Computed example of a mutant assay.
Amino acid sequence: MKTTLLVTVALISSLILVESCGSVKSNSNQPKTSESRSISLFNGKDLAGWYTFIKDRGRDADPKQVFTVQNGMIRVSGEEYGCITTNEEYSNYKLTVEFKWGQKTFAPRIDNARDNGILLHSTGQDGGYSGTWMHSIECQIIEGGTGDFLVVGNGSDKFALTSNVAPKKQGRGNVFMPGGQPLTINGGRIDWFARDPNWKDVLGFRGEKDVEKEAGKWNKIECVAEGDKIDIYLNGVLVNQAYRVKPTRGRIQIQSEGAEMFVRKVEIQPLAAH
């Protein structure tokens, strides 16, 4: 009996970790996925299943090789703004991306925080937003702000989300807070729960409570898109949540926005039927 009790306690402890900032994470809260149906969107050899779109160049025109595959990794050079986009649309899934920052940065963001992103539920025309990206819901990847939500929309309610936020802004942003006040946006952003209120757009920025690892180390970001909800986990920590998300399906884009980044895994797991 005593041995059984110790094993039970150990199992519970492994599922629930209390963060130093007071948040509680539990990977057991994630919807169940079907492991046998997991889909690798990157084969480690080439960009099969994706196409490139570069600002002012268009589709499948990448003369500077902003997007290449090297040593089993996708290299995003950052030299020009653009993205790789999946050929297929997806809905109701868990997307896992493993990434790390490189060393190079480019104008106009040479001295700014390293910045890219994953665009979910991307629909409409290539380059529909700023001549560069499809309209979409962005999971931000930026030093100090990885896990922020952005609505890369067209100003209509066709691209929108609702999140529970703290009663007062921290710094200049609305910050995700479980149990907070609902806020609906069709543009702009919702910051992850512990984004440093003194964040500055400078190269190498690190916040006191950052979950993202320092530049050069691998991070795992998981976007769980279930119906009209999206949860974002960074290195196992739930950092942001949205609901009443519009749209609820679309292509996936990975951005190039001035900073070198490497990606070694892009995988989708369809959510198991309820």
Rank of each mutant, 00 (worst) to 15 (best):
S23N: 11
T248C: 03
K217H: 15
P197E: 05
V76Y: 05
T85C: 09
T33K: 09
N164A: 07
D231S: 14
K246L: 13
H135D: 06
G207N: 13
D60G: 01
A48P: 02
T123P: 00
R195G: 10
I39N: 10
K217T: 14
N71D: 15
G82D: 03
M1T: 05
I254Q: 03
E80P: 03
L183C: 10
P178H: 12
A48V: 07
K32C: 04
Q103S: 14
S91E: 14
I74N: 06
V152H: 04
N186W: 10
A48M: 05
T8D: 10
G171E: 03
G78K: 09
P108D: 15
L11V: 15
K169Y: 07
K213A: 11
K32P: 00
N154Y: 05
R75F: 04
S28R: 14
T68C: 09
D115H: 07
G49F: 02
E226S: 03
I221L: 01
W50M: 02
R75P: 03
G82Q: 04
E88D: 08
S34E: 11
T123D: 03
R244A: 14
E88F: 02
N43A: 11
F67Q: 01
G44D: 03
E89S: 15
F159G: 06
G173R: 13
T105M: 13
I137L: 10
V202S: 10
Q181P: 01
P197Q: 01
T96I: 12
C223Q: 12
P247V: 02
F149N: 05
L120M: 13
Q125W: 10
I230A: 07
S91N: 09
E79K: 09
E267R: 15
N112P: 08
